[in-house]
Design a protein around this nucleic acid. Sequence first.
RNA 1: GGGCAGGUACCAAAGUGGUCAAAUGGGGCGGGCUGUAAACCCGCUGGGGUAACCCUUCGGAGGUUCGAAUCCUUCUCUGCCCA
Length: 409
Amino acid sequence: MSDNVFDILKERGLIAQTSDDDAVRKMLGNDPIVFYIGFDSTATSLHIGSLVPIMAMKHLQRAGHKPIAIVGGGTTMVGDPSGKAELRQMLTEETIREYGRQIHSQLDRYLHFDGKNCIAVDNADWLLKLNYVEFLRDIGRHFSVNRMLAAEAYRQRMEKGLSFIEFNYQLLQAYDFLYLFRNYGCTLQMGGDDQWGNILAGVDLIRRVDNVKVEAMTFPLLTLSTGAKMGKTASGTVWLDAEKFNPYDFYQYWINCDDRDLGPFLKTFTFLSMDEIKRLESLQGSELREAKQILAFEATIISHGKSAAREAKASSEAAFGTGGELDGMPTTTINRSRLEQGINPAELFAEVGLTGSRGEAKRLIKQGGLYINDQRIDSLERLVNENDLTPEGILLRSGKKKYHRVLAK
RNA sequence: GGGCAGGUACCAAAGUGGUCAAAUGGGGCGGGCUGUAAACCCGCUGGGGUAACCCUUCGGAGGUUCGAAUCCUUCUCUGCCCA
């Protein structure tokens, strides 16, 4: 098999479209190139959806190419209408900066910015300085409104309405590419397939103003076999930040994936060899659990490191099988005196976040959905007290698989 | 700027003075069956309370009324048509 990273991405199903397959393959097979992906600063943390571009960047990085990550302070101020049903909430400049800082440090964990072979830039640095009229004359004139309106991304929005600010997003993203091309020699932009239009706009722009052919590549948008969008669970969005989304829960997210998603997930979210992946995919029935454990372990290592992954794995095994330590389990420590008095379980479950409210906890108790140390709570009268305290603490469970450990001090 | 139609819970969408914490569908959650999977069946789905009941919610703010998601005023946002 070829060691051209293009072929690796292709084999893993990570390529949706390119501007020119042969040209892209050739450029990736030769000397190191500079490429970029943009990340919006719309939240304090990236979520699992950003993992696809991150993995792709890592693949190219491993092959010796030089990544640039744009943390999009400038473009975020405008807001990308692609794939959005309506105008999204406008964030203040200050908020966007703060989000950008956090996202920058997260990306750093994956990519290790060194300021030279791997850098992060904020497009606010150049976009905010643009002069409006000058920009219109130099850049705006290269964009055909007719053509933009024909694009799927905008056509959808013709129904719901599209504000002028959003309509400009594409110009700014195209300009980013031009800027990076001129200042960093960046010749390839990648992104999710929903970005195809925006990315191509940049390719076109560079061809028109600098008469150079640069390239574009997009990744397929991962949807689950159930049709749902990836990355939502009962505990909310699957964030990449360990503070916002516990590594144990992260591990469980992968364990709980649908059988049908296993193969694509292994290819996309781990660096396992294709041979190994083929072996895992061929497993049948309950053996698939083993494959899911490997998926979960590998994916957790990439995002949270080896020791967190080990803890998560051990806790998962402790909760669902035999043996293993519970140390990676989300844990809350409470005052021993409260146990001595006895705690209303509804209160405790709500407090540790296993249920959204006491009312919900009570409902679940009535439905037989809450457990203490794997024993169903069968009465609203029951209190949690010292007798429930095991050497491992008290293991609370909501439903089949949401666990939380309580320690007393 | 003018005219019209709208803003209801996570989403979509009923409701047009009390019987509305608000139909229905989706989603989500719990139970059963399983493999920590899918499909399927049953149940739940604002907060507090064992309960009676209390509190908060129908774009925002005022008002009418014994009583408002429902009527009035005003503000605001969105869509459509005209300019």
